[in-house]
């Protein structure tokens, strides 16, 4: 009898502790990331897209509600709740000199979540991109249809001009693409627009500092 009471008391105490912890946790900021031991830098892609880079500098930033609002004002589609949280901006460097920006964006596609590694110039124009994770057949075939060449060198305004009213890549630009490829090309173009807005809003201090310290670049 006493043993049963002891077990019940212990379970009640455990439940209370759990409830208090969860209550405290409930007031914490709304971001929760995957366990940090699983974090991987896109090192391969950084050195592929910036072959002269000797290293890169990480800048961890919070994508919060404020960033969401700012980005929403800047581009014609919203930043989703799942895109909030802590993210890393990578600045590839050549013997200490910054070469540009690298950031990974996760985008929803027909074939699951795609991760796109973006390389931007210090002026936030598209230098290049790589699929870090993209599981559909169109992920490789769309590159043969000139998507990379279409968006390279473009800034945010020029990228927005590639899209029609529904946010799809304009039909005239996608003449050689099949339906899947056009859909993916639209996702990639929207991702490019978004990554520029996110970097300018979420890492404004870094962007400002690099522009001030390296006006010639």
């Amino acid at each position: 009898m006493w043993h049963r009471h002891a077990i019940a008391s212990r379970r009640l105490a455990s439940a209370l502790v759990a409830a208090i912890i969860l209550l405290v946790g409930g007031t914490a900021p709304a971001w929760a990331d995957a366990p940090y031991c699983s974090l991987r830098d896109p090192s391969h892609q950084i050195y592929e897209m910036y072959p002269t880079a000797t290293g890169y500098r990480s800048v961890v930033g919070d994508i919060n509600n404020e960033t969401q609002v700012t980005v929403g004002e800047q581009i014609p589609f919203p930043l989703l709740h799942g895109e909030m949280g802590q993210h890393t901006l990578y600045v590839p460097v050549d013997s200490g000199d910054p070469l540009g920006y690298i950031q990974i964006r996760s985008e929803l596609t027909e074939w699951g979540m795609a991760e796109i590694v973006w390389a931007l110039s210090l002026q936030r124009e598209v230098v290049d991109f790589r699929f870090q994770r993209c599981r559909g057949r169109a992920c490789s075939s769309v590159l043969d249809k000139g998507l990379r060449e279409l968006i390279q060198g473009l800034d945010q305004d020029a990228l927005i001009a590639l899209l029609d009213d529904q946010g799809q890549l304009q039909e005239s630009l996608a003449a050689t693409m099949n339906e899947d490829e056009r859909m993916l090309a639209s996702v990639v173009t929207r991702s490019a627009i978004k990554v520029i807005a996110v970097i300018e809003s979420g890492w404004s201090t870094t962007v400002r500092e690099l522009a001030q310290n390296h006006p010639d670049l």
Binding site: S14, P35, G55, R57, V93, G96
Partner: peptide, 25 residues
């Protein structure tokens, strides 16, 4: 089995780039 813990990840950087990463779980 219950786990109560902390997960910490810190990147140390210098002018020439990232120097090292500390992970404590």
């Amino acid at each position: 089995v219950d786990f109560i813990g902390t997960d910490l990840h810190k990147v140390f950087s210098g002018d020439s780039g990232d120097i090292g990463t500390l992970t404590v779980q």
